[in-house]
């Protein structure tokens, strides 16, 4: 059975239908990319999965029905959302931001171990642990956002445009980490407008258009699709 099953999910903002009957599955250990143009509904999809946006349809995670779950419940179960715009705590230090990632956890030893793992992945965060999050560069903030998400002990991590507004070299570094984490067994759902990079790292991908799934398939299938090449890869 798949780790995450989404069946006929629909979401609304007032009367505006933003997602219509979106269905997808994520197997444990996969790295799935969700691509689509601006306003396609990618962010809304992730928000629905983490319980921030109310939806109709069905969400099953590890065999449990999560359709009406609160964000706190989803975090507890290990669905961790690293949001668009990062949503860090700007006046808290890097260290405090990371500790807050473990807010729901009480397993102190494991928390310490996770903190060390994050520091290994992003040594810069360790260097800047006393600095306020708001003073970091965009790339560092994105690293901190991912680090904070990792401190929640995710079983699946939802990444919303981790490359947004970041210098290309740093993007490479961040995607290297994403790949590495996935190789270590972390199931990943990656939303990206930077389609080339996303298709490079993912195993499978879904293309979202106007709130519905227009196309899905393995990374290779998607990247060789003529329509995708034309509208997203500019070839």
């Amino acid at each position: 059975m798949a780790l995450l099953e989404v069946d006929k999910l629909s979401a609304f903002y007032g009367h505006l239908r933003v997602l219509s009957d979106v269905s997808l599955t994520v197997e444990a250990g996969e790295l799935i990319a969700i691509i689509g143009s601006n306003g396609a509904g990618k962010t809304t999809l992730l928000r629905s999965l983490s319980g921030l946006t109310k939806t109709t349809g069905r969400i099953r995670f590890d065999g449990r029905d999560l359709t009406a779950a609160s964000p706190q419940e989803t975090v507890r179960l290990g669905i961790v959302h690293c949001p668009e715009g990062r949503k860090l705590f700007p006046d808290l230090t890097v260290g405090e931001n990371l500790s807050l990632g473990a807010f729901l956890r009480r397993d102190h030893a494991a928390i310490q171990a996770d903190l060390e793992r994050v520091n290994d992945l992003f040594p810069i965060l360790h260097e800047r642990r006393e600095q306020k999050a708001g003073t970091l560069s965009g790339g560092e903030q994105q690293m901190l956002a991912i680090g904070r998400a990792l401190m929640c002990r995710p079983r699946i991590i939802l990444l919303d445009e981790p490359s947004f507004g970041i210098a290309p070299i740093i993007v490479d570094r961040i995607f290297e980490v994403i790949r590495q984490l996935n190789a270590g067994g972390l199931t990943t759902l990656l939303v990206e407008q930077n389609v080339g990079v996303a298709l490079d790292v993912c195993t499978r991908a879904y293309v979202l258009e106007n709130g519905h799934v227009a196309l899905s398939g393995s990374a290779g299938e998607i990247s060789s699709n003529a329509a995708v090449r034309e509208s997203y890869l500019g070839m």
Partner: peptide, 22 residues
């Protein structure tokens, strides 16, 4: 930890929700 959750909500409500704070 309670105090930190207060600061967290004050600085980013959504960020706080996403780490499991109510």
């Amino acid at each position: 930890s309670a105090g930190q959750s207060i600061k967290a909500v004050a600085q980013s409500r959504e960020g706080a929700i996403l780490v499991g704070i109510k």
